[in-house]
C-alpha cells in the first residue's frame, strides 16, 4: 500500500486517473437513481431544450432527458468494455500459454494467424467483421475481441516461454509433472498478473473502439443510450443543440482518460524497473 501512496505522490496524473475511474463507477451506479426523468420518456413539447434546472443536460430531439440517458448508458458502455477486456485477457492467456506449451506445428500456425490479424488496422478489421456479422452490440463486441486478442496471445506466449524455462517450472517437469500440471500450477498463476495489467491498459482503447463502432452504426442500436450512439444521434443537431453530442463525448473522453492514466499508474507500481509513464 505504501508503494501505491508513493506512486501517487510521484505521479499526480495517475491519481487523477484513479479518481476519474471511481467517479465513473459512481456515476454508473448512482446516476440512474439521481436522474429526475426516465431515460426513454418522450416529451415532444420539450424537445431540444438547452440545459436547465429541469433538464440538467438538456433534452434531445424527442424531448428525452440527456442526463438520464447518459446515466443509464454509463453501465452498458462500461460493462461492454470490461466484458471485451475480460474475454480477451482470459482467452489470450489460455491460447498463448497453450501455444507456447504445445510448440511445433500448432504453435507456428497460431502465430501466423496472429500475424495476419495484426496485418490489418484494428478499426478496419473490426468494422469489416461487425458488418459481416450484422449490426448489433453483441456482434460489435465479438469483433472487438477478435481484433484485440492477438496482442494478448503474443504477450502470454512470450511470457509463458520465459516462465517455462525458469527453475521452478523446470524442476516440476523433472519431478515428473505433466504438461497440464505445469500449465495450471506454474504458468497460469504467474501469467495472471501481467495479463491483467495489460488488460487494464486496454480498457480505454476498447471503450473508444466500441464507441466508434456505435457511432458508425455497427454497435448498440437505437434507442439504446450507449454513449457512442448518443454522440452519433446528436450530430445532426450539433449546430443548434450542442449539448446532445458534447456531453456523451465528454463522458467517453473522461472515461478513457481515467483508464489510460490508471493503467500507467498500476504498471509503474507493479513494475518499477520500467521507465515511468510519460
Amino acid at each position: 500500500m505504501s508503494a501505491l501512496r508513493l506512486a501517487m505522490r510521484r505521479d499526480p496524473a495517475g491519481s487523477l486517473g484513479a479518481l476519474l475511474v471511481l467517479l465513473l463507477l459512481g456515476f454508473a451506479m448512482l446516476g440512474p437513481l439521481v436522474a429526475q426523468h426516465p431515460p426513454d420518456a418522450i416529451a415532444l413539447a420539450r424537445r431540444l431544450q438547452p440545459p436547465s434546472a429541469l433538464n440538467w443536460l438538456g433534452t434531445d430531439e424527442l424531448g428525452r432527458d440527456v442526463f438520464a440517458r447518459l446515466a443509464h448508458g454509463a453501465w452498458p458502455s462500461l460493462m461492454a468494455a470490461l466484458l471485451v477486456v475480460g474475454t480477451t485477457v482470459t482467452l489470450g492467456t489460455l491460447l498463448g500459454a497453450f501455444s507456447a506449451l504445445l510448440g511445433g506445428l500448432a504453435d507456428a500456425v497460431a502465430m501466423r494467424i496472429i500475424d495476419v490479424l495484426l496485418a490489418v488496422p484494428a478499426l478496419v478489421l473490426a468494422m469489416a467483421l461487425a458488418a459481416a456479422l450484422g449490426p448489433s452490440l453483441v456482434n460489435a463486441l465479438i469483433a472487438l475481441v477478435v481484433v484485440r486478442l492477438p496482442v494478448f496471445v503474443r504477450l502470454a506466449r512470450a511470457q509463458a516461454l520465459v516462465l517455462r524455462s525458469r527453475p521452478f517450472a523446470e524442476f516440476a517437469r523433472l519431478a515428473g509433472a505433466g504438461r497440464w500440471h505445469v500449465l495450471r500450477h506454474h504458468l497460469l498463476p504467474n501469467l495472471a498478473g501481467i495479463m491483467v495489467v495489460q488488460g487494464l491498459m486496454d480498457v480505454a482503447a476498447v471503450i473508444l473502439g466500441a464507441a466508434a463502432l456505435g457511432f458508425i452504426g455497427l454497435g448498440a442500436q437505437p434507442p439504446s443510450p450507449e454513449w457512442g450512439g448518443l454522440v452519433a444521434s446528436g450530430r445532426h443537431f450539433m449546430a443548434d443543440a450542442w449539448w446532445l453530442s458534447l456531453f456523451p463525448g465528454l463522458a467517453l473522453m473522461l472515461a478513457a482518460l481515467g483508464f489510460n492514466l490508471l493503467g500507467d499508474l498500476v504498471r509503474d507500481v507493479l513494475d518499477p524497473r520500467q521507465e515511468p509513464a510519460p
Binding site: 463525448g249 473522453m253 478513457a256 489510460n260
Partner: peptide, 14 residues
C-alpha cells in the same frame, strides 16, 4: 493522454 482518450468522431463534431 487526453489526445489519445478523445473519441475521434466527437473531436470532429466539436
Amino acid at each position: 493522454t487526453m489526445m489519445i482518450s478523445a473519441p475521434t468522431f466527437w473531436i470532429g463534431l466539436v
